[in-house]
Design a binder for these strands. Structure first.
Lengths: 329, 329
DNA sequence: CATCGTTGTTCCAACGATGTAAAGACCGCG
DNA sequence: CGCGGTCTTTACATCGTTGGAACAACGATG
C-alpha cells in the first residue's frame, strides 16, 4: 500500500507537497501538481484514514446504538442513517443493545472519543445517571426520564391521538391498546395520545383494555391479542404501539377466525415495509424515517463542531397510512 | 481524554511501562504495577484505538458489504455478524450497495487495508475483473462466475431441490419458480435445484413457469404472481427464490381470491422472521444464519493472519420450515 | 569479586498523516 | 540593484501507541 512518502519519492517532491495536493491546497505550481497527480495515479495512493484521523483528532466514525437489527424499524432506519452519514464522510458503527440495561451500558462504555466522533442513541432502559457521554450524542424517540440530550423524532402524543381518532371515526367504541411499558418513554407518550383521543370523543378509559408488552416483538403482540380476545367483552379495535405487535395481533385474530377489519380494526405504528404486504395490509402511523436519519446526522455535525450547543428537539413529520386492517377493500 | 503519557506522569514511570501494564506484559514489579493501575483508574484511561492500530498495522474493523439493510435477510444476518465479530474484537462497518454494479464497485473501492482488516461480501452484480481486493475477503452465497474468494453459505442446489420436492410430495404438478435472474449466482443454482427436483419426479420443465425478477423485493414477487395467475393454465404451486418474493406472491393471491395453500402452495427461501407470522404463515427454506455469520468471521480471522491460505468453501446447514402456505392447519 | 542470566525499566524510532514555521523562488517597484 | 511582498516548497514536530535495543538492578554462581 502506497504512502505519501512513496508518492513523494516518485514525483520528486516533498511529502508535504503531496499532502497539499491531496487536500486541495491552492498554491502548488501547475507542473508539480501534474507530476504529483500522475504519481498518485500510478501508485494508486489512498490515504490512511487512521493516521489522518490520529493527526486531525477525529475518527471519522459515528456510532448508532440500537436494540436489534432484526427489528425492521431499526434496520430500515440504520440503512438511512448510513446513507445520510456517508454524505458527510462519516462511517457508521452499529452497536446492538438488545434493549437491556446492561447491553445499553456496555455499548455506551465502549463509546470513547477515540472510537467515534459522535453517537446516535435509541435507548430503552437507560437511567438518567448513565448519560455521562464523552462524545456529542443525539437521541431518537423519547425517553421516560428527562435526559440532557438533543432529540429527533415525531410527536408521539399527536401521532397516537391521530391513530386512535381514525379508529373512532370508523365507529369503533371499545378500543384497546397494546404495548404499555413501565420504562419506555415512547410507550408512555403513545398511551397519553390514546387517552387524549378517547377523552376527546367522550369515550371512557378502561384500563383493562390497555395491555402491557415487555418486548415489542411479534410474539408479544400475539400473546397480548389472545388476552384481549379472551375477555368477556372483547374490543372492536386495537391500537398497537408498533407494527410488530400489530402483526402478532393480526396473526392471533386470524387463528381465532376474528375478521379484520370487520370484527376488529387494527392500527400499527412505524409503517414497516412488510406492513403494506400483509393480508390484510396494516394501517399504520408512518414516520418519515429518512427525515429522522438526516436530522440526526445534521444535529451531530453541528454538535461535533461546537460541543456545547444548547439542546435541540427536532420534530419530524408523520402521516397515517390507511390500509385494509381498518378499511376493507 | 487521558493518554499513556498522562498516566505515566501520574504513576511516576515511563510511558512504555504503562503500555506494558495495559497490554498484560508479565515482567512489571508489583508495586509499579499497582501504581500504574491506580493511575489508570484515576485517569479513566482508554487506549486510542486509532493510534494503536496505526502502530500495529491493523484497523480493528471489518466491512460487511450487502445490498440493503431494509431487506430482512440482510438485516438479520448483519445483526449476527456484528455479534460474531464482537467476540474477536472486531467492529463491523456496513456498506450498502443497493444491488447495483456501480454501488458494489464503489463499496469495494472504499475498502482499503487502512480502513478495514477484512471484508464479508454479498455481491450480486460484480464481474470477475472487479475482484482485485486489497484485503482478505469472504463471500456469502454464490456467484454466477467463478471468483477467487472463499465462500460461506448453504448448498443452494440441494436446498432448492428439497423445497420443490416438498411441493411435489403434496401432489402438486404445475410448479412455478419466481426469481430467475441472469446475473445472480444463487438464482442460477436455485433454478438448477428446481429443475433437478422436477426431473427426479418425472415432471416436465416448462419455461413459461419460470418467472424472472429483476429485484427480490415484495413488489417483484407480487408482479410475478400476477403474470402467473394471468396464464391460461396457472400453476398449483410456486417456489420463490426468497421470502420477500413469496410474501409478494401471497399478497397477489389474496387479492385475486386464490386460496393458499388449497389452490396454490407457496414455498419461500431465507425464513425471515416475518414469515412465521403472515397469514397464512410461509413455508420456507431456513438457512442457519448464525452459523453463516460465525463461519464467515472465523474464515476472516484465519485469512487476516495468513493472507494466502487456500480457498475454502464452508457449507452451513439448512432446514425446511413447513408452515401453512403449503400445509393447511 | 568479576561474571552471568534473569528481571524490570527506559529511551528512541516508527506507524502515516498534517500544522507550523521558516526558507527559497519569484515578481514588481523605486 | 536592493527591497518588500507574494507564492511555493521544505524540514520538523506532532498525534498516541508499541517494538526493539539499550541499560540498570539484582541475586546467584564460579
Amino acid at each position: 500500500m502506497a504512502t505519501l512518502k512513496d508518492v513523494a519519492r516518485l514525483a520528486g517532491v516533498s511529502v508535504k507537497t503531496v499532502s497539499n495536493v491531496v487536500n486541495g491546497y491552492s498554491f502548488v505550481k501547475p507542473d508539480n501538481r501534474a507530476r504529483v497527480e500522475a504519481a498518485l495515479e500510478a501508485t494508486g495512493y489512498r490515504p490512511n484514514l487512521g493516521a489522518r484521523n490520529l493527526r486531525r483528532g477525529r475518527t471519522g466514525f459515528i456510532a448508532l446504538v440500537l436494540p436489534e437489527l432484526s427489528i425492521p424499524y431499526f434496520a430500515e432506519l440504520a440503512g438511512l442513517v448510513i446513507a445520510a452519514a456517508q454524505e458527510h464522510e462519516w462511517n457508521v458503527l452499529i452497536e446492538q443493545t438488545f434493549g437491556t440495561l446492561s447491553g445499553e451500558r456496555l455499548a455506551l462504555a465502549s463509546l470513547g472519543p477515540h472510537l467515534v466522533d459522535a453517537a446516535i442513541l435509541s435507548p430503552e432502559a437507560l437511567q438518567v445517571e448513565d448519560f455521562q457521554l464523552s462524545v456529542p450524542a443525539v437521541m431518537l424517540g423519547e425517553h421516560a426520564v428527562d435526559v440532557p440530550l438533543s432529540r429527533v423524532g415525531i410527536d408521539n402524543v399527536a401521532a397516537a391521538t391521530f391513530a386512535v381518532r381514525h379508529l373512532i371515526s370508523l365507529g369503533r367504541r371499545r378500543i384497546a391498546a397494546i404495548g404499555a411499558h413501565p420504562q419506555r418513554g415512547t410507550a408512555a407518550l403513545r398511551l397519553e395520545g390514546y387517552r387524549a383521543a378517547l377523552a376527546e370523543a367522550g369515550l371512557p378509559f378502561d384500563s383493562s383494555l390497555v395491555v402491557p408488552a415487555l418486548n415489542y416483538h411479534r410474539a408479544d403482540g400475539a400473546a397480548a391479542m389472545k388476552a384481549l380476545l379472551d375477555m368477556r367483552n372483547p374490543p372492536d379495535a386495537v391500537f398497537c404501539f408498533n407494527d410488530l405487535l400489530a402483526v402478532g395481533a393480526m396473526r392471533t385474530a386470524a387463528e381465532r377466525f376474528v375478521r379484520v377489519p370487520q370484527d376488529l380494526a387494527i392500527v400499527g405504528f412505524d409503517n414497516n415495509d412488510e406492513s403494506a404486504y400483509s393480508s390484510p395490509s396494516l394501517t399504520s402511523i408512518a414516520p418519515d424515517k429518512a427525515a429522522i436519519a438526516r436530522a440526526a446526522v445534521n444535529l451531530l455535525r453541528e454538535r461535533a463542531g461546537s460541543p456545547d450547543l444548547e439542546l435541540d428537539d427536532v420534530q419530524t413529520p408523520f402521516s397515517l397510512q390507511v390500509r385494509e386492517s381498518t378499511v376493507a377493500r
